[in-house]
Design a binder for these strands. Structure first.
Length: 317
DNA sequence: TCGTGTCAAGATCTT
DNA sequence: AAGATCTTGACACGA
């Protein structure tokens, strides 16, 4: 079975490899002319799009098929201060160029709206802001020419004192999403509130693919084993390729924080479990050292665990 | 040039 | 009820 590896947003090997350049609302306010504000935003965005394309080319050259684009591609995208700015139009053919590159080079690309995007919030204004953020992410993928496939990783959200009510609200708000948003969503277990078992049940009910984060599962579980969970998690992907997130603790004090690199011992037990059902899957490495950590993990697996590498960032399990 | 406080956003924990 | 913390990389400002 084939297992591909990828990393998040920033490449440390690519010169000027951060597509996260941004500005602040405060800095924008000091610019008087609206047209000058837009040109600053546009310049930053085009730089981010250029960096994203350079990273994708690096990925292709290094046989990396999995990548997460940054939510910061468009600076202040959903902030009221940029209201009226058509960032899709301003990106011109760049969006499509990136999408074409991804398709031509057999890549799987996703995004991860951040933790302010809360579909189960009881506050209408928070829900509205979350829908705006989902819409922003969907527009990015649409402008790249992608149909609505699972591409946005989200968490369930807050607890709001009563988990069952919070979950019910998630179901309701999720069901109300337009297809172009709902069909893009994948749900991930988090490190404090919603366990893998809970997210799995929700995903099975909603027909939504689940992204298993094995680090979060270590932080937050009720004793469920991955042996029991994994076959069901994989099943939420129907014919698609399941995806997991891996990372290691920064240290014993900051267990939930991500380390620079990924420790083999945090991943290997899962690989043994995954081997039992013969199904390809993808691994997103979430580590401070980004692509360097991803390659280190692949190397550790080949050198220390004797697993064979079929491409630079793909192993045969 | 370097170090550090601050930054769009919410929820939850601590006091 | 108010303030700190979470988490993160980069901006922005001051020394």
């Amino acid at each position: 079975m084939r297992v591909r590896f990828g990393y998040v947003a920033i490449s440390l090997a690519v010169p000027e490899g951060s597509p996260n350049k941004t500005t602040t609302a405060k800095a924008l306010e000091s610019i008087k002319e609206p047209i000058d504000r837009i040109s600053r935003l546009r310049r930053i965005m085009l730089e981010n799009l250029d960096t994203t394309l350079r990273i994708l080319k690096y990925n292709s050259a290094h046989e990396i098929h999995l990548y997460r684009v940054t939510s910061k591609t468009v600076p202040l995208a959903t902030h009221p201060i940029v209201d009226g700015w058509d960032y899709i139009a301003d990106g011109g053919s760049k969006w499509r160029e990136i999408g074409d590159y991804i398709r031509t080079n057999d890549m799987r690309v996703s995004a991860h709206p951040d933790h302010f995007t809360l579909l189960n919030s009881p506050k209408p204004e928070v829900l509205a802001a979350s829908l705006t953020d989902l819409d922003y992410h969907a527009r990015i993928f649409e402008s790249m020419g992608f149909e609505a496939f699972p591409s946005l990783v989200m968490h369930v959200g807050g607890l709001y004192k009563e988990k069952s009510t919070a979950l019910m609200r998630f179901r309701e708000h999720f069901a109300r999403l337009p297809d172009r948003l709902r069909l893009r969503v994948m749900l991930e277990n988090d490190d404090k509130m919603y366990t893998a078992a809970e997210v799995l049940s929700l995903c099975e009910e909603l027909g939504c693919p689940m992204v298993l984060d094995i680090h979060h599962h270590r932080c937050n579980n009720k004793g469920e084993s991955l042996q029991d969970l994994w076959p069901r998690i994989a099943a939420t992907w129907s014919g698609g390729i399941p995806k997991i997130h891996v990372s290691s603790s920064k240290n014993e004090k900051d267990v939930r924080a991500h380390a620079d690199y990924v420790d083999l011992k945090d991943v290997f037990p899962f690989l043994k479990v995954a081997r039992e059902i013969n199904r390809d899957f993808d691994i997103m490495v979430e580590a401070k050292q980004k692509d360097m950590a991803m390659f280190q993990l692949v190397e550790d697996l080949t050198l220390e665990a004797g697993i064979s590498r079929t491409e630079q960032a793909t192993i045969e399990l």
